[in-house]
Design a protein around this nucleic acid. Structure first.
Length: 203
DNA sequence: CTACGGATTTTCT
DNA sequence: GAAAATCCGTAGT
């Protein structure tokens, strides 16, 4: 399957978020391949979006990568213990990004099960299987993504996204999660997910 | 099933 | 010093 190229990411975060659904996120490390279908995303639309880390043109060390070229990773640390993975979108100096909130495991299931629960995949309960990757911090843990993966080029060879083999049947557009501080931006329909998929974090 | 609070530390004011 | 793009365990319905 074809790796997504720079021009895929060089669009608004809303367009990239919608089009990432059904694509395959791949992480190759230490001879292990993790891959998972993207089933839930959120767009963070830059300096005018009160929910975005780059709102108002804020430009700190943490958010610097969002001001660079599209198609790079933005991984941040939150709540003292979790990481979240984003894809930098839009053009250089327009700090937009897409948060990946849910993925469906495809390859590397045993390593994902180990990373999350220190168990074999076969020993997981049904609840645990779904809980492997149905949230932004859960999928980072499962796919072994952390601060070392901030600022990586997704057009590179260890962390990238490929075209999926099936396009999503039905896409739901709704409001974003966990942004109670964002006033009217809370109500913008910038979260997208594949209808009916069990790895969506919040229905 | 839903609701709530605690965990834990970086990041920014 | 406060808040945070979350998760998990426990308690209640």
């Amino acid at each position: 399957m074809k790796k997504l190229e720079r021009n895929f990411y060089d669009r608004s975060a809303v367009d990239v978020a919608r089009d990432l659904l059904g694509k395959l996120l791949v992480h190759d490390v230490d001879g292990i391949r993790y891959s998972a279908r993207i089933v839930e995303t959120e767009a963070y639309c830059g300096i005018t979006d009160k929910a975005a880390h780059s709102y108002g043109g804020r430009r700190t060390e943490r958010v610097e990568v969002m001001y660079g070229k599209p198609g790079f990773s933005y991984v941040y640390f939150v709540y003292g213990m979790h990481f979240c993975f984003n894809v930098v979108s839009s053009s250089k100096d327009d700090p937009q990004a897409v948060l990946v909130r849910g993925v469906e495991p495809v390859e590397g299931l045993d390593m994902m099960a180990y990373n999350r629960f220190h168990m074999d995949y076969a020993a997981l309960s049904c609840t645990q299987k779904v809980s492997l990757t149905n949230g932004p911090a859960k999928l980072c843990k499962a796919l072994a993504l952390d601060r070392r993966h901030n600022g990586l080029d997704l057009c590179g060879s260890s962390l990238f996204i490929v075209q999926g083999d099936v396009s999503p049947s039905s896409i739901v557009e709704t409001t974003r999660i966990g942004i109670g501080y964002a006033e009217e931006a809370q109500d913008y329909p910038w979260r997208f997910y594949i209808a009916g998929n069990p790895y969506v974090s919040v229905k």
